[in-house]
Design a protein around this nucleic acid. Structure first.
Lengths: 338, 338
DNA sequence: ATGACTTTTGAAAACGTTTTCAATAACTTG
DNA sequence: CAAGTTATTGAAAACGTTTTCAAAAGTCAT
């Protein structure tokens, strides 16, 4: 391995000077600078990053914790983060929890061991009280998923309004029996969507029936299962609000199997505006989330916090969502228009 | 920051002994071992990984280079690799090329700067002659994408057979005018599939018409475009072989818009067996790739190479593909059965 | 030519580990 | 019990950087 000493020797200078050249210090004569460059070039020298990290106490790496990549929402999120991180001179370490608390905690140890300069949490399996312990070791921010009580920067989307818009749309189409279907229990994202859902229902004086609630639905398969349950009901809903386009697609696939037409017999609205929502038959009405924007914001905020040494403070960044109306919710049973 | 010296002091021992305890050396008395553990516990000590990396010349990190994560094939691949890497005690650094040669080269520098112990290339934007330069700096293997001439371990799938099986299936259904549609030009994966495709055609004495070739198709949108071109032909093909389920789905979506029925008027076969292939109308016949297996194999092979210091040698691991017949290719125009 | 800066350079210390080396202590084995 | 192992420990060097400190050399105003 070629080290800074080799370069110094070949250039006939001290390693201090070589280091100064590498790090663009002022006060190095053009002449020596030139010599150093030549020596580096000739030897193919490149600084060892472990040594740099040790000395500088900066690894130029950040980690992002997500549930799992196969979920296209997180795939997109991580894709955008990687690009943003690279542009800011950072490498992105990817950590999947696979919905396990222990795995999530294990990933947080990266901060303790100084393998990364900071962490973006887009997963939240553990309680904030547990996670906050790690704040001593480095900056930690939340992205998308969140805990209200955490006094750290949080970059999130206006999920309440998202749930509200989608539900309001269904209500406007005349639906009064609307099912609610979401992912994880613990998720505040799902929680907020439900708040928006409830608010819209309340505005129409409609009480929510517990029988219309479905939870832990993430995948297409889950969606098909949900459809079956709805189909078996004596008094089924006429519309379903879902937490993801995959689940909505599953409901549509289930309906097709049972010969139930959508949106006529059942309306479905998704969430995310994934490509899948554009290619099902019928196409899925959904709520678009500005994923790339959120990813970039998260990276920039974290990088700022890494550069400032100051302790983290409570900060909130909220981005808007957009309702996208397609075929899976229009032309359904018009019963009453507000 | 609490260091090994703090632990040593509190335990009343030398840091050598503490280090030995941490690294599970033999020949440390139970008594001192206990003291060290207590001190570590009390101080919340955890070894600094930059210092470790510097001394051990091992970072316990590997990088995977992929075109981009939004492509679900790579999403799945990376998901499985991350899990496998973690199980082997490694962190996974993710690098996207976004189809840029320069970006790919930039990522390879990670090996020079010793930020990672090895690299898995699942992208291949540059020529092997360029990439091979980096072999001096650490192990480098290929996964999925490959270059025949590279004398390094390559984990790949039997794409020739994949192309052959799919095409043979179309021929068996009576098709004689079969279009071929693939992704990148440079890709040897696409290249091999074409070899299998050609082989099947040759067995039936059918020459391939250049007008039936479509390239650079990756996305649903690309697939829709391909359909439009096919639809505008005077003598259109009766079946299309595509390089991905997304493209196949796009063709199906395009056909739906133009009122062309699939598979009756046009048969389509995809590749990958992504979830999307199960939810289009009709469901897509496709070729399943053992992604998880390939990802695990790649990680294990790389980790082995990192542990052996020996120089890399030519190795080939080839995993089989499986034809999955669904609706998009059956019930088409039966013309002749072999 | 003097004093007061500023620029340019190198030696050495520091970052937090692991490992080599040597020394001492504790066993064996005849 | 002497000689030969083996177990246990610590001091110091090493990994490859960056940075502090000090010194030498240059510049400038008087």
């Amino acid at each position: 391995m070629v080290t800074i000493d080799d370069v110094a020797e070949l250039a006939g200078l001290s390693k201090s000077t070589v280091s100064r050249v590498i790090n663009h210090y002022p006060h190095v004569s053009q002449e020596k600078k030139q010599k150093v460059f030549e020596a580096m070039e000739k030897l193919g020298y490149v600084p060892n990053s472990s040594a740099r990290s040790l000395r500088n106490k900066k690894t130029k790496m950040i980690a992002v914790i997500v549930p799992r990549l196969m979920n296209p929402f997180f795939g997109q999120l991580v894709e955008s983060m990687e690009v943003a991180a690279n542009q800011s001179g950072y490498q992105l370490l990817i950590c999947q929890t696979m919905y396990s608390q222990e795995t999530e905690l294990g990933h947080l140890e990266l901060l303790k061991t100084k393998q990364v300069d900071g962490i973006i949490m887009a997963s939240l399996e553990n309680d904030w009280s547990t996670i906050s312990e790690y704040l001593t070791y480095g900056p930690l921010i939340m992205c998308n998923e969140f805990d209200e009580s955490a006094d750290i920067p949080i970059i999130k989307l206006d999920q309440i309004h998202g749930g509200y818009m989608a539900t309001k749309h269904l209500l406007r189409q005349g639906h009064r029996k609307i099912a609610y279907c979401s992912g994880g229990y613990k998720s505040m994202v799902a929680n907020h969507r439900k708040l928006g859902f409830d608010k819209a229902l309340a505005e129409h004086g409609i009480p929510f029936q517990d029988a219309y609630g479905f939870y832990n639905a993430y995948t297409i398969e889950n969606g098909m299962e949900v459809f079956k349950q709805i189909h078996a009901m004596k008094d089924p809903p006429t519309a379903v609000f879902t937490g993801s386009d995959e689940v909505a697609a599953g409901i549509i696939a289930g309906a097709r199997e049972y010969g139930v037409t959508i949106p006529n017999e059942l309306s479905v609205i998704g969430f995310d505006n994934q490509v899948i929502s554009k290619i099902t038959e019928p196409k899925i009405s959904t709520v678009e989330q500005p994923i790339e924007q959120m990813a970039q914001k998260a990276v920039h905020v974290l990088v700022d916090k890494i550069n400032d040494q100051k302790p983290l403070i409570r900060e909130r960044y909220e981005l808007p969502l957009e309702l996208i109306i397609r075929e899976s919710t229009v032309g359904g049973p018009l019963r009453a228009v507000e």
